[in-house]
């Protein structure tokens, strides 16, 4: 069942005195349990694509359909609700909610539904899941980049989203941290059936994903043969194994 569908999405920006087409006719279908990775240079429109997919920015053309609903026709309130319950996001410029501990920050989306103590327990579980349980009471500035990304991931995952959008979650990470994050993403996709769309600046980040595509000059470029679990036609890729490796 197609969970997210971008249908001819276009977006234009004014940059300086020119008007640039950031996205030109994006077509993308994502199903539950898919792990999609999109790579592209800066200014390629990756972040914009994710923001449109999340319903935060409206596209200039085309439409975004999530779970059968056209996001363009939804009311503000309904779109906000989606972010709270169905769509989890990990952004580059994410910060912690001011004045809260890491644990409370992660638990925040659940405070409405659950009692305080329950929400915190859930938060602790999620933090453990992504491997940063020790950070629960740390201060934001004490965390390394990798830990921060994983906390942001926990903040997104606690709401048990059906779709997870991650903007360059592996930026500024060393190799070990990168593998850890990608591993978590992968396991979440496979075990919980969450659809994941992530972006990255370059290819070495993306070797754990199922589907890999590039964003260049506003267009999505998919490899000619898009087979699940293999990456072909890319230099430097691993040989086709057909096996999905377990993360962590």
């Amino acid at each position: 069942m197609t969970l997210l569908s971008l249908d001819g999405v276009t977006k234009r920006y004014a940059r300086g005195f020119r008007e640039v087409e950031a996205l030109a006719g994006i077509e993308l279908d994502v199903e539950a349990g898919d792990f999609v990775a999109i790579w592209g240079g800066s200014r390629s429109g990756k972040t914009t694509l994710l923001r449109i997919a999340a319903g935060i920015e409206p596209p200039d053309g085309g439409r975004v359909v999530f779970d059968g609903h056209d996001l363009g026709t939804l009311a503000r309130k309904a779109r906000a609700r989606l972010l709270l319950t169905d769509i989890g996001c990990v952004w580059q410029t994410g910060r912690i909610t001011r004045g809260l501990s890491v644990l409370d920050h992660v638990a925040l989306p659940r405070f409405k539904e659950r009692s305080h103590a329950q929400a915190r327990r859930e938060a602790h579980d999620v933090l453990e899941r992504v491997g940063v349980a020790q950070c629960a009471h740390a201060r934001w500035h004490e965390l390394s980049d990798g830990e921060r990304t994983r906390v942001a991931l926990a903040h997104a995952l606690i709401r048990r989203p059906r779709l997870l959008l991650a903007d360059e979650p592996t930026a500024n990470l060393n190799m070990i941290e990168r593998e850890q994050v990608l591993g978590v993403l992968r396991s979440v996709a496979e075990e919980a059936g969450v659809a994941i769309v992530m972006t990255a600046p370059d290819a070495p980040n993306l070797l754990q994903s199922h589907r890999l595509m590039a964003l260049d000059a506003g267009r999505l470029i998919k490899p000619r043969s898009e087979q699940r679990g293999t990456l072909i036609d890319f230099p430097g890729s691993r040989p086709a194994s057909g096996q999905a490796s377990r993360g962590r």
């Binding site: 370059d202 290819a203 070495p204 590039a214 260049d216 470029i221 000619r224 036609d233 890319f234 230099p235 430097g236």
Partner: peptide, 8 residues
């Protein structure tokens, strides 16, 4: 440096 992947 790691070479960027080539696109066809």
């Amino acid at each position: 440096p790691v070479a960027a992947p080539q696109l066809r």
